[in-house]
Amino acid sequence: MTIVSDRAFSVSRLPGFATIAVTVLVMLYLPIVLLVLFAFNAGPSPAIWEGFSLHWFPRAWANEQVKEATIRSLVIATSAAIISTSVAVLAALGTTRRRKSPGQTFVYLMINQPLMVPEIVTAVALLILFGFIKVATGYQGLGYLILAHSAFCIPFAYLPIRARLEGMDITLEIAAADLYATPWQAFRHVTLPMLMPAVAAGFMLAFITSLDDVIISLFVKSAGQDTLPTYMLGQIRRNMTVEVNAISTLLIGLTVILLTAFFLLTRERNRPQK
């Protein structure tokens, strides 16, 4: 790619900007590409290339800890995404397309709170609270992780749903009422089908967010409840092997797939409206 040439005068072209931009894009991908590349390394080092091989993937999966952490991560992410998306749909219905009120601002602040409070603070707060509950009830299960993940996933599920609702023509629901739909039927047959792409998008963002979480999981998990990220963080202490690259590659792949789906879903929404 040639970056700067003696092109015709263009007011929007600023000298050096293209060079910086291309460098930034390259630097953004270089570490990730190398990480993925070395996942296919035949040798044991994530820095010295010894030929192509796929053997790190089955090897990682053969590791009982990796397998358990993967399943646990998926269970948590699925549950948290379902819970956060469900409550986010309801909250979005309750807070959009109405006159502004102080109560609504409060709800909006509450929902976005996880985006503003540093994760480490929430993590230690949950460590204390769940510590009490664990002692009081004796329950040590995945419930704590699922609940904590559900909470910080809510804003990610909420935002696309809210955006879609606000962009939706309210006349359509009025039209449904005019055509003899009860309020529930209007929601079921008009609002919900049109909201579905955004619900799916919100679900995916919540899923990715849960799958990526390290800090809160680290503080909330009981003994032997490693998720994939906390397991990987533990490995940094030991001598790093290509196993981590293999797991990372799979996570990156999953993210790219979900994001592509997200983009296709949200792009679809611009079509029906004019």
């Binding site: 006349t171 009025i174 039209a175 005019d178 003899y180 309020p183 049109m194």
Partner: peptide, 16 residues
């Protein structure tokens, strides 16, 4: 929804 009266909306309001 309980009135036997229907509307043709200015923007049509067809369900997309």
């Amino acid at each position: 929804n309980l009135r036997p009266v229907n509307t043709v909306f200015q923007s049509y309001a067809l369900f997309p």
